[in-house]
């Protein structure tokens, strides 16, 4: 009897150990490219072109990061432009999206269902369809090669998905709280600002982090609306253009990797902090309807 349980236990330990080994192996494979990017960003320009396999620099060249943001590199101003866009949108999108969501979740009015259906319908449209004519419209607005295309449209809700998510969340807020304020004579705006908005914090955090990540990494928008060399280029755009250079694999490859690391570290850090909300959000957007 004792023997049986011992052999069962040994078997279980063996299974556990092999499971850990397998999980670690998979983690190593999945994380290797990013570890390698960090390592390469710390190499000297000689080490980068060394024909031998080199996984680590002889001595980490932290100065590469100073070079990255040094004068004339474009990364420093790129970072500033990106931060301007991201900062604006992280304030404006949650406010405008929740404002609109409030009208769907907490107010009764003629035309509500119609507007809601129309909004959801636009989610199906391929982005590129509007982008082509927005380009010619922005030419008329004199918005080409400015930051306006990445900021001003967000004053109007910032995307159907965010409005939808916030509305779903607002529907879960008990009606009593809202009604009590109504009886006290609070108008819709006060109820939105003082009662509903503060309760929406969890979903707003999700929206803000997502807005941050999507504008932080957006290279395609600038590629369409900011093609001139005089344009206020974003960080993602500078990284994108640096990858297109001839002999990208050899010349300045270490500095280029620094750009990639900076681009990647910020979302990774956000993920580390807001892991729970983000994963729940992925599941939420993946499972709704």
């Amino acid at each position: 009897m004792e023997n049986v349980s011992r052999s069962a236990r040994t078997k279980k330990t063996a299974v556990n150990v092999s499971l850990y080994l397998l999980m670690t192996l998979v983690a190593a494979v999945l994380l290797f490219p990013y570890a390698f990017m960090v390592s390469k960003s710390l190499m000297t320009s000689e080490e980068v072109v060394d024909p031998k396999i080199r996984f680590l620099p002889a001595a980490p060249q932290l100065a590469n990061y100073l070079k990255l943001f040094g004068s004339g590199s474009g990364y420093a101003s790129g970072l500033l432009h990106t931060l301007a866009i991201v900062g604006f949108n992280c304030v404006v999108v949650p406010l405008s999206a929740s404002f609109i969501a409030f009208s769907f979740a907490k107010l009764k009015w003629t035309g509500r269902n119609f507007m809601f259906a129309v909004m959801l319908g636009t989610m199906m449209l391929p982005g590129v369809l509007t982008q082509l004519s927005l380009y010619s419209i922005y030419v008329k607005f004199n918005w080409i090669n400015t930051l306006y295309p990445f900021t001003i449209p967000n004053l109007f809700g910032g995307g159907a998905l965010y409005i939808f998510l916030i509305r779903q969340f607002m529907l879960g807020i008990p009606r009593d709280m809202d009604n009590a304020a109504k009886i006290d004579g609070a108008n819709a705006f006060i109820r939105y600002l003082k009662i509903v908005l503060p309760l929406c914090k969890p979903v707003l955090v999700y929206v803000i982090v997502n807005v941050f990540i999507s504008y932080w990494g957006d290279y395609y928008g600038p590629l369409v609306y900011m093609r001139a060399s005089s344009a206020p280029k974003t960080m993602a755009q500078v990284v994108f253009e640096s990858a297109l250079e001839e002999n990208a694999a050899t010349y300045n490859a270490n500095i280029r990797m620094c750009g990639g690391v900076v681009m990647s570290l910020v979302p990774a850090a956000l993920f580390a902090v807001f892991q729970k909300q983000l994963i729940e959000g992925v599941v939420m957007t993946g499972l709704k309807d």
Partner: peptide
Amino acid sequence: VFYYLPCMIPAVAGGLLWADMFDGTYG
């Protein structure tokens, strides 16, 4: 978390990295 982390890397950084790692000579 480790497995999900690569999804957080912006496409533009991923593209830069993979073009580098897949280079025909120096990759």
